[in-house]
Design a protein around this nucleic acid. Structure first.
Lengths: 257, 257
DNA sequence: CGACATCTTGACTGCGTTCAAACATGGTGG
DNA sequence: CCACCATGTTTGAACGCAGTCAAGATGTCG
Protein backbone atom coordinates (compact mmCIF):
# COMPACT_ATOMS: atom_id res chain seq x y z
CA UNK A 1 0.00 0.00 0.00
CA UNK A 2 0.89 3.58 -0.31
CA UNK A 3 2.84 5.27 2.39
CA UNK A 4 1.26 8.49 3.51
CA UNK A 5 3.01 11.41 5.07
CA UNK A 6 1.49 14.61 6.18
CA UNK A 7 0.82 17.87 4.55
CA UNK A 8 2.50 20.23 2.29
CA UNK A 9 6.15 20.18 3.01
CA UNK A 10 6.46 19.95 -0.71
CA UNK A 11 4.15 22.76 -1.52
CA UNK A 12 6.93 24.56 -3.27
CA UNK A 13 6.97 21.72 -5.74
CA UNK A 14 3.25 21.84 -6.17
CA UNK A 15 3.48 25.52 -6.81
CA UNK A 16 6.06 25.01 -9.48
CA UNK A 17 3.98 22.73 -11.62
CA UNK A 18 0.29 22.47 -12.35
CA UNK A 19 -0.71 25.10 -9.82
CA UNK A 20 1.80 27.72 -10.74
CA UNK A 21 -0.54 30.61 -11.19
CA UNK A 22 -3.01 30.46 -8.38
CA UNK A 23 -3.40 33.00 -5.68
CA UNK A 24 -1.74 32.53 -2.28
CA UNK A 25 -4.82 31.79 -0.22
CA UNK A 26 -5.98 29.09 -2.61
CA UNK A 27 -2.52 27.63 -2.44
CA UNK A 28 -2.68 27.64 1.31
CA UNK A 29 -5.99 25.85 1.18
CA UNK A 30 -4.48 23.24 -1.10
CA UNK A 31 -1.60 22.97 1.27
CA UNK A 32 -3.93 22.30 4.14
CA UNK A 33 -5.68 19.41 2.44
CA UNK A 34 -2.57 18.01 0.80
CA UNK A 35 -1.18 14.60 1.64
CA UNK A 36 1.82 12.91 0.12
CA UNK A 37 1.50 9.32 -1.01
CA UNK A 38 4.37 7.09 -2.04
CA UNK A 39 4.09 4.16 -4.39
CA UNK A 40 6.50 1.54 -5.52
CA UNK A 41 6.85 0.55 -9.14
CA UNK A 42 3.94 -1.49 -10.38
CA UNK A 43 1.35 -0.52 -7.82
CA UNK A 44 -2.16 0.46 -8.74
CA UNK A 45 -2.78 4.07 -7.83
CA UNK A 46 -6.39 4.27 -8.84
CA UNK A 47 -8.59 1.81 -10.58
CA UNK A 48 -11.10 4.12 -12.14
CA UNK A 49 -10.85 7.81 -11.80
CA UNK A 50 -14.48 8.05 -10.94
CA UNK A 51 -14.30 5.99 -7.85
CA UNK A 52 -10.98 7.31 -6.69
CA UNK A 53 -11.63 9.51 -3.72
CA UNK A 54 -8.71 11.81 -4.31
CA UNK A 55 -7.28 14.08 -6.91
CA UNK A 56 -3.56 13.95 -7.25
CA UNK A 57 -0.58 15.75 -8.58
CA UNK A 58 2.56 13.81 -9.42
CA UNK A 59 5.59 14.90 -7.44
CA UNK A 60 8.09 12.38 -8.71
CA UNK A 61 8.24 9.22 -10.76
CA UNK A 62 6.23 8.09 -13.74
CA UNK A 63 2.72 6.71 -13.86
CA UNK A 64 1.03 4.69 -16.57
CA UNK A 65 -2.41 5.81 -17.57
CA UNK A 66 -4.33 2.95 -19.07
CA UNK A 67 -7.80 2.38 -20.31
CA UNK A 68 -9.58 -0.75 -19.27
CA UNK A 69 -11.21 -2.57 -22.12
CA UNK A 70 -14.32 -4.63 -22.22
CA UNK A 71 -12.46 -7.92 -22.09
CA UNK A 72 -10.40 -6.84 -19.10
CA UNK A 73 -7.17 -6.06 -20.89
CA UNK A 74 -5.65 -2.67 -20.43
CA UNK A 75 -4.23 -0.31 -22.95
CA UNK A 76 -1.76 2.45 -22.22
CA UNK A 77 -2.95 5.83 -23.40
CA UNK A 78 -0.38 8.03 -21.80
CA UNK A 79 2.20 8.66 -19.16
CA UNK A 80 2.10 10.99 -16.19
CA UNK A 81 5.22 12.67 -14.87
CA UNK A 82 5.89 15.24 -12.22
CA UNK A 83 3.59 18.19 -12.43
CA UNK A 84 0.79 16.26 -14.04
CA UNK A 85 -2.59 16.01 -12.45
CA UNK A 86 -4.61 12.87 -12.23
CA UNK A 87 -8.17 12.16 -11.30
CA UNK A 88 -9.40 15.40 -12.80
CA UNK A 89 -12.52 13.33 -13.11
CA UNK A 90 -13.99 15.31 -15.94
CA UNK A 91 -13.03 12.59 -18.30
CA UNK A 92 -16.59 11.54 -18.77
CA UNK A 93 -17.45 7.87 -18.76
CA UNK A 94 -13.86 6.81 -19.25
CA UNK A 95 -12.68 3.73 -17.44
CA UNK A 96 -9.10 4.33 -16.50
CA UNK A 97 -6.61 2.83 -14.21
CA UNK A 98 -3.43 4.47 -13.07
CA UNK A 99 -0.39 2.43 -12.16
CA UNK A 100 3.05 3.46 -11.11
CA UNK A 101 5.62 2.65 -13.77
CA UNK A 102 8.44 3.57 -11.43
CA UNK A 103 8.59 4.39 -7.77
CA UNK A 104 6.50 7.48 -7.46
CA UNK A 105 5.27 10.10 -5.08
CA UNK A 106 2.15 12.07 -5.49
CA UNK A 107 0.37 14.70 -3.59
CA UNK A 108 -3.27 13.89 -2.96
CA UNK A 109 -6.24 16.12 -2.33
CA UNK A 110 -9.52 14.72 -1.06
CA UNK A 111 -11.89 14.87 -3.98
CA UNK A 112 -14.82 16.57 -2.31
CA UNK A 113 -12.68 19.19 -0.66
CA UNK A 114 -10.82 19.86 -3.84
CA UNK A 115 -13.95 20.23 -5.90
CA UNK A 116 -15.43 22.55 -3.33
CA UNK A 117 -12.34 24.69 -3.55
CA UNK A 118 -12.57 24.66 -7.33
CA UNK A 119 -16.00 26.22 -7.24
CA UNK A 120 -14.69 28.90 -4.89
CA UNK A 121 -11.49 29.72 -6.68
CA UNK A 122 -11.75 30.70 -10.35
CA UNK A 123 -8.04 30.58 -10.88
CA UNK A 124 -7.88 27.05 -9.55
CA UNK A 125 -10.62 26.10 -11.96
CA UNK A 126 -8.58 27.68 -14.67
CA UNK A 127 -5.55 25.69 -13.61
CA UNK A 128 -7.57 22.51 -13.86
CA UNK A 129 -8.77 23.52 -17.28
CA UNK A 130 -5.27 24.29 -18.47
CA UNK A 131 -4.15 20.94 -17.19
CA UNK A 132 -6.78 19.09 -19.16
CA UNK A 133 -6.02 21.15 -22.24
CA UNK A 134 -2.40 20.21 -21.84
CA UNK A 135 -3.29 16.55 -21.66
CA UNK A 136 -5.40 16.86 -24.75
CA UNK A 137 -2.46 18.34 -26.53
CA UNK A 138 -0.27 15.46 -25.48
CA UNK A 139 -2.84 12.89 -26.49
CA UNK A 140 -2.75 14.43 -29.95
CA UNK A 141 1.01 14.19 -30.02
CA UNK A 142 0.61 10.48 -29.40
CA UNK A 143 -1.89 10.31 -32.22
CA UNK A 144 0.60 11.74 -34.65
CA UNK A 145 3.33 9.42 -33.49
CA UNK A 146 1.09 6.39 -33.70
CA UNK A 147 -0.06 7.18 -37.19
CA UNK A 148 3.45 6.74 -38.52
CA UNK A 149 3.46 3.47 -40.45
CA UNK A 150 7.05 2.59 -39.75
CA UNK A 151 8.06 1.46 -36.31
CA UNK A 152 11.37 3.27 -36.47
CA UNK A 153 9.47 6.45 -37.20
CA UNK A 154 7.27 5.95 -34.17
CA UNK A 155 10.25 5.36 -31.95
CA UNK A 156 11.97 8.43 -33.31
CA UNK A 157 8.83 10.42 -32.62
CA UNK A 158 8.62 8.96 -29.15
CA UNK A 159 12.18 9.94 -28.32
CA UNK A 160 11.65 13.44 -29.63
CA UNK A 161 8.47 13.71 -27.63
CA UNK A 162 10.38 12.70 -24.54
CA UNK A 163 12.91 15.42 -25.29
CA UNK A 164 10.33 18.13 -25.73
CA UNK A 165 7.98 17.10 -22.98
CA UNK A 166 10.48 16.32 -20.27
CA UNK A 167 12.98 18.99 -21.10
CA UNK A 168 13.19 20.16 -17.51
CA UNK A 169 13.08 16.85 -15.73
CA UNK A 170 16.68 16.02 -15.15
CA UNK A 171 16.32 12.43 -14.03
CA UNK A 172 14.72 11.58 -17.36
CA UNK A 173 16.66 13.87 -19.62
CA UNK A 174 20.31 14.79 -19.35
CA UNK A 175 22.35 16.97 -21.60
CA UNK A 176 25.72 15.56 -22.49
CA UNK A 177 28.44 16.90 -24.72
CA UNK A 178 27.72 14.07 -27.17
CA UNK A 179 24.00 14.68 -27.18
CA UNK A 180 20.94 14.19 -25.02
CA UNK A 181 20.57 11.16 -22.84
CA UNK A 182 17.05 9.86 -22.31
CA UNK A 183 16.05 7.51 -19.55
CA UNK A 184 13.09 5.53 -20.76
CA UNK A 185 10.79 5.20 -17.79
CA UNK A 186 8.83 2.17 -18.92
CA UNK A 187 9.62 -1.36 -19.93
CA UNK A 188 10.00 -2.51 -23.51
CA UNK A 189 6.71 -4.32 -23.30
CA UNK A 190 4.88 -1.23 -22.16
CA UNK A 191 6.66 0.86 -24.74
CA UNK A 192 5.72 -1.60 -27.45
CA UNK A 193 2.16 -1.48 -26.22
CA UNK A 194 2.20 2.29 -26.28
CA UNK A 195 3.57 2.43 -29.80
CA UNK A 196 1.24 -0.21 -31.10
CA UNK A 197 3.80 -2.89 -31.76
CA UNK A 198 5.79 -5.71 -30.11
CA UNK A 199 8.91 -5.56 -28.00
CA UNK A 200 10.94 -7.40 -30.64
CA UNK A 201 10.24 -4.69 -33.18
CA UNK A 202 11.11 -2.00 -30.67
CA UNK A 203 14.42 -3.66 -30.10
CA UNK A 204 15.16 -4.06 -33.78
CA UNK A 205 14.26 -0.52 -34.74
CA UNK A 206 16.15 0.91 -31.83
CA UNK A 207 19.26 -0.99 -32.82
CA UNK A 208 18.71 -0.02 -36.42
CA UNK A 209 18.78 3.64 -35.40
CA UNK A 210 21.83 2.86 -33.36
CA UNK A 211 23.59 1.31 -36.36
CA UNK A 212 22.90 4.46 -38.31
CA UNK A 213 24.65 6.46 -35.63
CA UNK A 214 21.55 8.47 -34.79
CA UNK A 215 21.36 7.16 -31.25
CA UNK A 216 23.47 5.16 -28.87
CA UNK A 217 22.02 2.49 -26.64
CA UNK A 218 24.00 2.77 -23.43
CA UNK A 219 21.65 0.55 -21.54
CA UNK A 220 18.36 -0.91 -22.68
CA UNK A 221 16.58 1.97 -20.99
CA UNK A 222 19.21 4.68 -21.35
CA UNK A 223 19.53 6.08 -24.81
CA UNK A 224 21.81 8.79 -26.04
CA UNK A 225 20.48 10.88 -28.88
CA UNK A 226 23.46 11.82 -31.02
CA UNK A 227 21.77 13.47 -33.95
CA UNK A 228 18.48 15.15 -33.13
CA UNK A 229 18.05 16.31 -36.67
CA UNK A 230 18.44 12.85 -38.14
CA UNK A 231 15.99 11.62 -35.54
CA UNK A 232 13.44 14.22 -36.56
CA UNK A 233 14.02 13.20 -40.11
CA UNK A 234 13.39 9.58 -39.24
CA UNK A 235 10.19 10.56 -37.51
CA UNK A 236 8.84 12.67 -40.33
CA UNK A 237 10.13 11.17 -43.50
CA UNK A 238 9.75 7.50 -43.99
CA UNK A 239 12.42 7.68 -46.61
CA UNK A 240 15.08 7.18 -44.03
CA UNK A 241 16.14 4.02 -45.80
CA UNK A 242 17.22 6.03 -48.79
CA UNK A 243 19.30 8.27 -46.60
CA UNK A 244 20.65 5.36 -44.65
CA UNK A 245 21.86 3.61 -47.76
CA UNK A 246 23.37 6.87 -48.92
CA UNK A 247 25.28 7.24 -45.71
CA UNK A 248 26.40 3.64 -45.89
CA UNK A 249 27.58 4.23 -49.40
CA UNK A 250 29.53 7.28 -48.37
CA UNK A 251 31.09 5.45 -45.48
CA UNK A 252 31.99 2.49 -47.63
CA UNK A 253 33.48 4.69 -50.27
CA UNK A 254 35.57 6.45 -47.71
CA UNK A 255 36.66 3.20 -46.15
CA UNK A 256 37.61 1.67 -49.43
CA UNK A 257 40.04 4.40 -50.24
CA UNK B 1 -14.99 32.99 -48.01
CA UNK B 2 -17.49 32.19 -45.39
CA UNK B 3 -20.99 33.48 -45.67
CA UNK B 4 -22.13 35.21 -42.52
CA UNK B 5 -25.66 35.61 -41.35
CA UNK B 6 -26.79 37.33 -38.25
CA UNK B 7 -27.44 36.24 -34.78
CA UNK B 8 -28.92 33.39 -33.00
CA UNK B 9 -31.85 32.09 -34.90
CA UNK B 10 -30.25 28.77 -34.26
CA UNK B 11 -29.78 29.23 -30.62
CA UNK B 12 -31.99 26.28 -29.94
CA UNK B 13 -29.41 24.17 -31.64
CA UNK B 14 -26.63 25.74 -29.68
CA UNK B 15 -28.55 25.05 -26.53
CA UNK B 16 -28.92 21.42 -27.44
CA UNK B 17 -25.25 20.70 -27.77
CA UNK B 18 -22.18 21.97 -26.02
CA UNK B 19 -24.00 24.61 -24.05
CA UNK B 20 -26.85 22.51 -22.83
CA UNK B 21 -26.55 23.29 -19.17
CA UNK B 22 -25.95 26.95 -18.88
CA UNK B 23 -28.23 29.46 -17.31
CA UNK B 24 -30.64 31.52 -19.41
CA UNK B 25 -28.94 34.88 -19.12
CA UNK B 26 -25.60 33.48 -20.19
CA UNK B 27 -27.33 31.85 -23.10
CA UNK B 28 -28.87 35.15 -24.04
CA UNK B 29 -25.46 36.77 -23.93
CA UNK B 30 -24.12 34.07 -26.20
CA UNK B 31 -27.07 34.60 -28.46
CA UNK B 32 -26.31 38.28 -28.69
CA UNK B 33 -22.74 37.76 -29.80
CA UNK B 34 -23.47 34.79 -32.02
CA UNK B 35 -22.96 34.82 -35.74
CA UNK B 36 -23.48 31.99 -38.18
CA UNK B 37 -20.77 31.23 -40.69
CA UNK B 38 -21.15 28.92 -43.64
CA UNK B 39 -18.32 27.07 -45.31
CA UNK B 40 -18.13 24.88 -48.36
CA UNK B 41 -16.25 21.61 -48.36
CA UNK B 42 -12.51 22.07 -48.35
CA UNK B 43 -12.30 25.59 -46.99
CA UNK B 44 -9.94 26.60 -44.26
CA UNK B 45 -11.86 27.67 -41.20
CA UNK B 46 -8.95 28.66 -39.03
CA UNK B 47 -5.26 28.35 -39.56
CA UNK B 48 -4.06 28.29 -36.01
CA UNK B 49 -6.44 28.42 -33.15
CA UNK B 50 -4.42 31.05 -31.42
CA UNK B 51 -4.71 33.62 -34.08
CA UNK B 52 -8.31 32.89 -34.91
CA UNK B 53 -10.37 35.70 -33.56
CA UNK B 54 -13.44 33.66 -32.88
CA UNK B 55 -14.57 30.66 -30.94
CA UNK B 56 -16.99 28.43 -32.73
CA UNK B 57 -19.53 25.75 -32.29
CA UNK B 58 -20.33 23.44 -35.16
CA UNK B 59 -23.95 23.57 -36.24
CA UNK B 60 -23.79 21.21 -39.20
CA UNK B 61 -21.26 19.44 -41.34
CA UNK B 62 -17.92 17.91 -40.49
CA UNK B 63 -14.61 19.64 -39.93
CA UNK B 64 -11.12 18.20 -40.07
CA UNK B 65 -8.83 19.12 -37.26
CA UNK B 66 -5.24 18.85 -38.32
CA UNK B 67 -1.91 19.57 -36.82
CA UNK B 68 0.70 21.30 -38.87
CA UNK B 69 4.06 19.57 -38.79
CA UNK B 70 7.47 21.13 -38.95
CA UNK B 71 7.89 20.37 -42.63
CA UNK B 72 4.57 21.92 -43.53
CA UNK B 73 2.56 18.77 -43.98
CA UNK B 74 -0.60 18.41 -42.02
CA UNK B 75 -1.83 15.53 -40.03
CA UNK B 76 -5.41 14.83 -39.09
CA UNK B 77 -5.93 14.40 -35.38
CA UNK B 78 -9.66 14.42 -35.20
CA UNK B 79 -13.00 15.34 -36.61
CA UNK B 80 -15.50 17.91 -35.43
CA UNK B 81 -19.21 17.44 -35.89
CA UNK B 82 -22.25 19.34 -34.81
CA UNK B 83 -22.18 20.29 -31.18
CA UNK B 84 -18.41 20.35 -31.00
CA UNK B 85 -16.56 23.46 -30.02
CA UNK B 86 -13.49 24.72 -31.76
CA UNK B 87 -10.98 27.37 -30.94
CA UNK B 88 -11.21 26.68 -27.26
CA UNK B 89 -7.77 28.14 -27.43
CA UNK B 90 -6.51 26.48 -24.30
CA UNK B 91 -4.65 24.02 -26.40
CA UNK B 92 -1.36 25.52 -25.47
CA UNK B 93 1.27 25.98 -28.14
CA UNK B 94 -0.50 23.69 -30.55
CA UNK B 95 -0.41 24.57 -34.19
CA UNK B 96 -3.70 23.50 -35.64
CA UNK B 97 -5.65 24.20 -38.69
CA UNK B 98 -9.33 23.51 -39.14
CA UNK B 99 -10.80 22.74 -42.52
CA UNK B 100 -14.29 21.87 -43.57
CA UNK B 101 -14.50 18.28 -44.74
CA UNK B 102 -18.06 18.81 -45.95
CA UNK B 103 -20.18 21.87 -46.34
CA UNK B 104 -20.51 23.18 -42.84
CA UNK B 105 -22.10 25.82 -40.72
CA UNK B 106 -20.79 27.04 -37.48
CA UNK B 107 -21.80 29.55 -34.96
CA UNK B 108 -19.03 31.96 -34.09
CA UNK B 109 -18.44 34.02 -30.99
CA UNK B 110 -15.89 36.83 -30.95
CA UNK B 111 -13.00 35.55 -28.89
CA UNK B 112 -12.58 38.48 -26.52
CA UNK B 113 -16.29 38.77 -25.80
CA UNK B 114 -16.57 35.04 -25.26
CA UNK B 115 -13.65 34.90 -22.90
CA UNK B 116 -14.98 37.86 -20.98
CA UNK B 117 -18.25 36.02 -20.60
CA UNK B 118 -16.42 32.91 -19.47
CA UNK B 119 -14.86 34.75 -16.56
CA UNK B 120 -18.29 36.03 -15.57
CA UNK B 121 -20.24 32.82 -15.92
CA UNK B 122 -18.97 29.83 -13.96
CA UNK B 123 -21.32 27.44 -15.68
CA UNK B 124 -20.09 28.53 -19.08
CA UNK B 125 -16.56 27.92 -17.92
CA UNK B 126 -17.68 24.52 -16.79
CA UNK B 127 -19.24 23.87 -20.17
CA UNK B 128 -15.96 24.73 -21.83
CA UNK B 129 -14.15 22.42 -19.46
CA UNK B 130 -16.54 19.57 -20.14
CA UNK B 131 -16.09 20.11 -23.82
CA UNK B 132 -12.34 19.81 -23.59
CA UNK B 133 -12.65 16.77 -21.36
CA UNK B 134 -14.90 15.22 -23.93
CA UNK B 135 -12.40 15.87 -26.66
CA UNK B 136 -9.67 14.36 -24.56
CA UNK B 137 -11.75 11.26 -24.18
CA UNK B 138 -12.24 11.05 -27.90
CA UNK B 139 -8.58 11.57 -28.61
CA UNK B 140 -7.90 8.56 -26.41
CA UNK B 141 -10.42 6.50 -28.31
CA UNK B 142 -8.44 7.30 -31.43
CA UNK B 143 -5.29 6.23 -29.63
CA UNK B 144 -6.72 2.85 -28.90
CA UNK B 145 -7.97 2.39 -32.43
CA UNK B 146 -4.62 3.41 -33.86
CA UNK B 147 -2.74 1.00 -31.69
CA UNK B 148 -4.38 -1.92 -33.40
CA UNK B 149 -1.75 -3.40 -35.64
CA UNK B 150 -4.12 -4.80 -38.22
CA UNK B 151 -5.72 -2.39 -40.61
CA UNK B 152 -9.03 -4.23 -40.69
CA UNK B 153 -9.15 -3.90 -36.93
CA UNK B 154 -8.59 -0.18 -37.12
CA UNK B 155 -11.30 0.23 -39.68
CA UNK B 156 -13.68 -1.82 -37.60
CA UNK B 157 -12.85 0.34 -34.62
CA UNK B 158 -13.34 3.44 -36.68
CA UNK B 159 -16.76 2.36 -37.86
CA UNK B 160 -17.80 1.49 -34.35
CA UNK B 161 -16.51 4.82 -33.12
CA UNK B 162 -18.58 6.55 -35.76
CA UNK B 163 -21.60 4.68 -34.50
CA UNK B 164 -21.04 5.71 -30.93
CA UNK B 165 -20.01 9.30 -31.51
CA UNK B 166 -22.60 10.18 -34.09
CA UNK B 167 -25.45 8.15 -32.77
CA UNK B 168 -27.80 11.09 -32.91
CA UNK B 169 -26.66 12.68 -36.12
CA UNK B 170 -29.00 11.35 -38.73
CA UNK B 171 -27.21 12.55 -41.83
CA UNK B 172 -24.18 10.51 -40.82
CA UNK B 173 -25.84 7.56 -39.21
CA UNK B 174 -29.05 5.96 -40.31
CA UNK B 175 -30.76 2.96 -38.85
CA UNK B 176 -32.01 0.54 -41.43
CA UNK B 177 -33.77 -2.77 -41.07
CA UNK B 178 -30.64 -4.52 -42.37
CA UNK B 179 -28.30 -2.67 -40.03
CA UNK B 180 -26.76 0.75 -39.54
CA UNK B 181 -25.72 2.85 -42.46
CA UNK B 182 -22.72 5.09 -41.96
CA UNK B 183 -21.87 8.00 -44.20
CA UNK B 184 -18.13 8.47 -44.06
CA UNK B 185 -17.56 12.20 -44.06
CA UNK B 186 -13.98 12.23 -45.27
CA UNK B 187 -12.15 10.95 -48.30
CA UNK B 188 -10.28 7.66 -48.42
CA UNK B 189 -7.02 9.52 -48.39
CA UNK B 190 -7.92 11.44 -45.28
CA UNK B 191 -9.27 8.31 -43.68
CA UNK B 192 -6.08 6.46 -44.51
CA UNK B 193 -4.16 9.34 -43.02
CA UNK B 194 -6.25 9.24 -39.90
CA UNK B 195 -5.82 5.50 -39.46
CA UNK B 196 -2.12 5.60 -40.15
CA UNK B 197 -2.16 3.72 -43.44
CA UNK B 198 -2.74 4.17 -47.19
CA UNK B 199 -5.95 4.41 -49.16
CA UNK B 200 -5.26 1.13 -50.94
CA UNK B 201 -5.15 -0.74 -47.67
CA UNK B 202 -8.35 0.95 -46.55
CA UNK B 203 -10.03 -0.21 -49.68
CA UNK B 204 -8.77 -3.76 -49.38
CA UNK B 205 -9.69 -4.17 -45.75
CA UNK B 206 -13.08 -2.63 -46.29
CA UNK B 207 -13.80 -5.04 -49.12
CA UNK B 208 -12.46 -7.88 -47.07
CA UNK B 209 -14.99 -7.07 -44.35
CA UNK B 210 -17.58 -6.82 -47.06
CA UNK B 211 -16.71 -10.29 -48.37
CA UNK B 212 -17.18 -11.65 -44.88
CA UNK B 213 -20.66 -10.22 -44.83
CA UNK B 214 -19.94 -7.96 -41.89
CA UNK B 215 -20.54 -4.79 -43.86
CA UNK B 216 -21.92 -3.77 -47.21
CA UNK B 217 -20.31 -1.08 -49.32
CA UNK B 218 -23.23 0.71 -50.94
CA UNK B 219 -21.10 3.54 -52.14
CA UNK B 220 -17.45 4.23 -51.42
CA UNK B 221 -18.50 6.55 -48.63
CA UNK B 222 -21.75 4.88 -47.59
CA UNK B 223 -21.30 1.72 -45.61
CA UNK B 224 -23.94 -0.50 -44.15
CA UNK B 225 -22.97 -2.30 -41.01
CA UNK B 226 -24.74 -5.63 -41.09
CA UNK B 227 -23.25 -7.34 -38.08
CA UNK B 228 -22.14 -5.01 -35.31
CA UNK B 229 -21.00 -7.89 -33.18
CA UNK B 230 -18.76 -9.30 -35.86
CA UNK B 231 -17.40 -5.83 -36.37
CA UNK B 232 -16.56 -5.49 -32.70
CA UNK B 233 -14.97 -8.90 -32.94
CA UNK B 234 -12.88 -7.78 -35.88
CA UNK B 235 -11.83 -4.73 -33.90
CA UNK B 236 -10.42 -6.59 -30.93
CA UNK B 237 -9.87 -10.02 -32.31
CA UNK B 238 -6.80 -8.68 -34.01
CA UNK B 239 -5.01 -9.14 -30.77
CA UNK B 240 -4.93 -5.56 -29.58
CA UNK B 241 -7.80 -3.92 -27.94
CA UNK B 242 -11.25 -2.80 -28.69
CA UNK B 243 -12.60 0.39 -27.28
CA UNK B 244 -14.38 -0.31 -24.06
CA UNK B 245 -17.04 2.26 -24.64
CA UNK B 246 -17.86 0.66 -27.92
CA UNK B 247 -19.25 -2.32 -26.12
CA UNK B 248 -21.60 -0.06 -24.24
CA UNK B 249 -22.64 1.59 -27.43
CA UNK B 250 -23.44 -1.70 -29.04
CA UNK B 251 -25.72 -2.46 -26.19
CA UNK B 252 -27.36 0.91 -26.54
CA UNK B 253 -27.83 0.57 -30.24
CA UNK B 254 -29.45 -2.76 -29.83
CA UNK B 255 -31.70 -1.42 -27.14
CA UNK B 256 -32.75 1.55 -29.18
CA UNK B 257 -33.83 -0.42 -32.13
C1' DC C 1 25.70 -19.62 -8.29
C1' DG C 2 21.38 -20.68 -10.31
C1' DA C 3 16.52 -19.10 -11.28
C1' DC C 4 13.95 -15.59 -13.19
C1' DA C 5 12.76 -11.61 -15.85
C1' DT C 6 13.93 -8.60 -19.47
C1' DC C 7 16.03 -7.69 -23.58
C1' DT C 8 18.09 -9.17 -27.93
C1' DT C 9 18.76 -11.89 -32.08
C1' DG C 10 17.40 -15.27 -35.67
C1' DA C 11 14.34 -17.46 -39.22
C1' DC C 12 10.04 -17.53 -41.33
C1' DT C 13 5.54 -16.05 -42.87
C1' DG C 14 2.07 -12.73 -43.93
C1' DC C 15 0.18 -8.32 -44.12
C1' DG C 16 0.54 -3.92 -45.88
C1' DT C 17 3.10 -0.61 -48.58
C1' DT C 18 4.43 0.57 -52.99
C1' DC C 19 4.09 1.33 -57.85
C1' DA C 20 1.15 0.82 -61.67
C1' DA C 21 -2.90 0.48 -64.14
C1' DA C 22 -7.91 -0.06 -64.59
C1' DC C 23 -12.29 1.61 -63.10
C1' DA C 24 -16.06 4.71 -61.48
C1' DT C 25 -17.83 9.50 -60.93
C1' DG C 26 -18.57 14.31 -61.64
C1' DG C 27 -17.89 18.48 -63.88
C1' DT C 28 -16.74 21.15 -68.36
C1' DG C 29 -16.83 22.46 -72.76
C1' DG C 30 -17.40 21.29 -77.51
C1' DC D 1 -25.78 14.94 -75.26
C1' DC D 2 -21.54 12.92 -75.39
C1' DA D 3 -16.52 13.22 -75.35
C1' DC D 4 -13.12 14.51 -72.36
C1' DC D 5 -10.41 15.21 -68.42
C1' DA D 6 -9.92 15.57 -63.25
C1' DT D 7 -10.51 13.41 -59.09
C1' DG D 8 -11.11 9.65 -56.31
C1' DT D 9 -11.49 4.69 -55.67
C1' DT D 10 -10.48 -0.05 -56.72
C1' DT D 11 -7.64 -3.91 -58.23
C1' DG D 12 -3.26 -6.31 -59.39
C1' DA D 13 1.66 -7.83 -58.63
C1' DA D 14 5.99 -7.60 -56.15
C1' DC D 15 8.74 -6.46 -52.42
C1' DG D 16 9.82 -5.42 -47.69
C1' DC D 17 8.74 -4.51 -43.02
C1' DA D 18 7.04 -6.24 -38.97
C1' DG D 19 4.56 -9.94 -36.38
C1' DT D 20 5.30 -14.51 -34.69
C1' DC D 21 7.58 -18.26 -32.46
C1' DA D 22 11.81 -19.87 -30.64
C1' DA D 23 16.32 -19.58 -28.89
C1' DG D 24 20.12 -17.02 -27.07
C1' DA D 25 22.11 -13.06 -24.26
C1' DT D 26 22.05 -9.99 -20.39
C1' DG D 27 20.97 -8.42 -16.04
C1' DT D 28 18.86 -9.01 -11.18
C1' DC D 29 17.88 -11.03 -6.95
C1' DG D 30 17.47 -14.47 -3.63
Amino acid sequence: MAIETHKGIRLGLVGSTAFSQICPETRDALDAMCRVKSYRAGQTVAHTQEKSEFIGCVLSGVLRMQKTLADGREHIVGLLVEGDMLGGGFDGPADFSIESATDAELCAFPRTEFEALVTLSPDLERAVLLNIANELDRARDWLIILSNQRIAGRIAGFLLLMCSRFRDIDHILQRRPEGIEVKIPISRIDLAHLLGTRPESISRSLHSLSDQGVIDIREPDRILIRDTKALAYAADEDEIEAVATLQDLLKNIRLER
